[in-house]
Design a protein around this nucleic acid. Structure first.
Lengths: 244, 244
DNA sequence: CAGTGGTCTAGACCACTCC
DNA sequence: GAGTGGTCTAGACCACTGC
């Protein structure tokens, strides 16, 4: 049960790495509680302060979460991942409106993942996988157009679904039906203009400017498991960055 | 010398706040070293661990920086603030080319700050201030067009300059000539199309798509002291976001 | 070498949650 | 009240920097 990592690293780094592996190995499922810090300190034969440091680092990593008086828990889904956070679709910018966008599935099918997608998903070369094309619409009108590529395993399950049974939120579905927890994502933003087909799907003019967000989503184990390209009206794009 | 903050807060929070104030008050200039942690622990009459916690928080805030074996230093300028980080202007994406963009000053003058700008700078109402219009160009060709608004004090000094004496990098200049250190900034990204005049200045077509970055920059004391609107070719805009 | 920050210990007591 | 994480102490020793 001892950490077998590089002994030149501080103990708390070794412990962090070891606990991370145990979480990846499924010893504690997402949402489950880790042993109390005093337990873990005993188990790893270190002082409480050292254990706390290791745990704090994992909290910073976003891997676990601490709740005073309750315990330390493996983080569930990635939060704040909605593509709508990049856009201002609300009528009057009054905040408290947790409207769930309506989803329209245009395609849900097997597909060959081309080289670009295969590279993002760290697949050796082009392979069979799953392709989804969908719109996400708010009552106000226009919304987002989304293309999603998934590797065949572990997402084969999705092909058994009727489009009408597709959930609005995919990540909880990935977890419950495919056993994959999305823990992290990398997104790039750029601008482009709409091709004819996409324009028709979005109810916008051909050549209209759009913001394009490309997201690679990673599982708890750090593997890229989903690649997604989302397009939305550039005029409604809005994003904030804090630097220090 | 003791912290006079809310005594219900943890000691390390009180100490953090107190040290922050002392830095703002100029007790240690940017780049200067704070006393050693053992000294500070004695001064505040706390254990070393408590002092370290307070210091770690300030490091996370970006206010100070620790160097093993050397000391703890007040951070100098805001880093990574270049507007070019939002764009891909490089020829072949070969990285190691620290090219300093060439700056062209189109205007440097007194101006009345309109309500929108005055609000961003937390000025009661429209006031006199300074307006700068400049281009930042790379050898490759097109670049960025920048509008900058500054309140009259402490930037009056700038008006004595000839445009040819304006430095490429403003923040070090603000510090050395106006006594203002930029410590933090808030940026929003949106999309627009070029008006006729801006298009001419940028050597682009009227109506061409641009990414617009609006930045409010804050001094060490937390006051907004500069408002800036930067425009660049939307086709070259590129930004990355990591979420977890 | 002296002086700095980094790691680690072995405790004590407090604050919060839940039964 | 039992169990959890949060705060704090008073030390020890290690690792890095610069004279």
């Amino acid at each position: 049960m001892q950490a077998a990592a590089d002994p030149r690293l501080p103990r708390y780094e070794q412990i962090r790495e070891h606990l991370r592996r145990r979480i990846f190995a499924g010893e504690w499922a997402p949402g489950a509680a880790l042993p109390a810090e005093t337990e873990l300190a005993k188990e790893y034969e270190v002082a409480l302060g050292t254990m706390r440091k290791a745990i704090e680092l994992m909290v910073d990593d976003g891997l676990i979460e601490r709740l005073h008086g309750k315990g330390t828990f493996v983080r569930g889904e990635l939060q704040q991942a909605s593509m709508f956070r990049f856009f201002r679709f609300r009528r009057d910018a009054d905040d408290a409106s947790p409207v769930v966008p309506h989803t329209v599935i245009h395609a849900l099918q097997e597909a060959t993942l081309d080289d670009r997608v295969a590279e993002r998903l760290s697949l050796g070369r082009a392979r069979r996988g799953i392709f989804i094309l969908r719109s996400r619409e708010l009552p106000e009108g226009s919304g987002l157009l989304e293309r999603i590529w998934l590797p065949y395993p572990p997402f084969r399950e999705l092909l058994k679904l009727q489009p009408k049974d597709m959930p609005d939120l995919l990540y909880p579905f990935y977890r419950s039906r495919c056993g994959v927890v999305i823990a992290r994502a990398s997104e790039t933003i750029r601008f482009a203009t709409l091709g004819r087909d996409d324009a028709a799907l979005m109810g916008m003019a051909k050549g209209a400017p759009v913001a394009v967000i490309e997201r690679t989503a990673f599982s708890l184990t750090g593997e890229p498991v989903e690649f997604r390209i989302t397009q939305g009206d550039a005029a409604k794009f809005y994003y904030n960055v804090e630097i220090k």
